[in-house]
Simulated assay, not measured.
Amino acid sequence: MMTTTKEQVSISTRIKQLKTEMRHNRLSILKLSEDLNYPATIIADILFLRKKPDMDLLDKIENEITNSSKNRKGLQRVRSFPDNPMEISNKSYQSLDFSHSNIPNKLGEKIKKIRTELNFSELELGATLSPSVPANFIEEMENNQFIPSIEHLIEIADLGETTLDWLLRD
């Protein structure tokens, strides 16, 4: 059964509202994927309108975002930024050995573009990522001196409302 144009517009509007709510609550596609026990790639394809959504899955996504929003509001967590950026622990952040890989030439430019479009400082972007990273890591990423982990790349792509493919291709 084919969907009508009116239904497609309704689905598109609904997905835009879900993405807005995800951004507002800083809920990543990876976290949503874990909570729903569903592949992140499929959820991303639906949210970026690359695949026609299964209405049951769309309802599950909407319910999870709503529940996540309620849980976050109940916690009333306030994120504070340290006075000293070096206070951010990087124990859980693993440095990548990229001696056998090539850093995409424009990766740093694209990360910086996303950060500036969000009006984030390097410190704010670093604190937004999970696990958090110090501002100097963000600077190194933007200068192509350091390759972020795949998890961080996905989060950065989500924040910029773009695809991982765009972020990594030159």
Rank of each mutant, 00 (worst) to 15 (best):
L57G: 04
L57N: 05
L58W: 01
L58Y: 03
L58K: 01
L58D: 08
L58E: 04
D59R: 03
D59W: 00
D59S: 08
D59T: 07
K60G: 03
K60M: 03
K60L: 06
K60V: 00
I61E: 06
I61Q: 02
I61Y: 01
I61S: 02
I61R: 02
I61T: 00
E62Y: 01
E62K: 08
E62T: 08
E62W: 01
N63D: 11
N63P: 06
E64Y: 00
E64I: 00
E64V: 00
E64Q: 12
E64S: 13
I65W: 04
I65K: 04
T66H: 10
T66I: 03
T66C: 02
N67L: 05
N67I: 03
N67T: 05
N67G: 04
N67F: 03
S68V: 00
S68Y: 08
S68L: 02
S68C: 04
S68H: 09
S69C: 01
K70T: 10
K70N: 13
K70A: 11
K70C: 06
K70M: 09
N71S: 07
N71P: 02
N71L: 06
N71V: 01
N71M: 06
N71Q: 09
N71G: 04
R72T: 10
R72W: 05
R72S: 14
R72D: 14
G74R: 07
G74N: 13
L75M: 11
L75K: 13
L75C: 09
R77V: 14
R77P: 10
V78A: 10
V78H: 11
V78F: 10
V78N: 10
R79V: 15
R79Y: 13
R79A: 15
R79D: 15
R79F: 13
R79L: 14
S80H: 15
S80E: 14
S80R: 11
S80A: 13
S80K: 15
S80I: 11
F81H: 07
F81G: 06
P82S: 07
P82Q: 05
P82N: 06
D83Y: 08
D83C: 06
D83G: 12
D83Q: 12
N84T: 06
N84D: 14
N84C: 10
N84Y: 02
P85Q: 08
P85F: 08
P85G: 11
P85R: 09
P85D: 12
M86T: 14
M86Q: 14
M86H: 13
M86F: 07
M86Y: 13
E87D: 15
E87T: 12
E87R: 11
E87V: 04
E87S: 15
